[in-house]
Design a protein around this nucleic acid. Sequence first.
DNA 1: GACATTTGACCCAA
DNA 2: TTGGGTCAAATGTC
Length: 352
Amino acid sequence: MESAVTWPYNTLINELAQGMEKTKQLRIHLWSTSPSETHDLILQKMLSSYDKALFILRWGGSNGATLSTPDTSVSVHGSIRIEDVNKNINDNQDNMNASKKRKMQHTWTEQVKVDFENGLEGHTGDGYNWRKYGQKYILGAKYPRSYYRCPYRLVQNCWATKQVQRSDDDLTVFDITYKGTHTCSQSTNTVPLSASPGKLELKLNDGHDLQGQQNQALSNCKNSLSVSTEDLVSEEMPAHFSFQSTFAFHDDVNHYFPALLDENHHQGCTVSPELISPASSESNYFSATTYVRTPNVQHSEADTADIISAHASTTNSPIGGMEFLIDPINSDPNFEFNMPEFFTYSNFEHGQ
DNA sequence: GACATTTGACCCAA
DNA sequence: TTGGGTCAAATGTC
């Protein structure tokens, strides 16, 4: 039997989710009809607020907290501090094995949509580096699930992982499940906004990362695929500038992808069919993500490797990893957890 | 040679 | 026993 508290709780979540969805649609519509970075920034903030609210509610619900519980760390009036969550987890981690550690980990799921007609719908990046460590076909799922973990797991004892599962129903939708929050410092990959403009490049993806041949083929198309962020990024922009870049980028790139997808040919840039992996030929999915790299910032070999699956937004964020601080104006200063607000899928580091 | 990804094998919870 | 999650050797790329 549904409790009196649960009913409005679920209704509230539904209403917020609908509001969020409509905001996303509005954002795409506005961008396609009359692109304005100012408008887009406002809509970003709205989406950010929805995300926060939903996370608070869901986290509270999944932890058995109710809206009326006065001493819970989560309430509609308060804010959740991820350190509190992590503290509770970490307090127990020393005395348990890895399996139990993972069980204790804070878990949440995001859906990410790729829309080749309108560009990325929603997210650009979670700001962390990830290393793929496995892929597996899950019973009942058409597409394999990919497993990623923090590349600094051993070095910094960071147990964050994520799973990327393509939706069976909608080829453009991916479910990304995050387990655990990053306890590592990934400052090695943060790049100040003031650094010289990076280069945005694309990665083809079938749900897995493309291999070198495909990358090489793409690099041959550099002129059409690479977009300087010089005109897209200003120092005054908030840390979330990459989404702006992504959006503009995809507007441009969308002219490219359909041709590549359908005919493997566009504007003199050819990708032979054999360069598309079997999986990709099956799914014809491209992870239309961005990677921003600043040439004058040094990365170690390990860092370079780690950048695969790093995300454009906070890879270049001066506040690395503090996703909600990307909205410096409206963010609640107490709201400090690392839940990804915007996503890319996997990112690709190519060229220097 | 170094590094990341792939993929079959293994572990373990349900 | 089954299936999801992880490991680690093999492989590929630069």
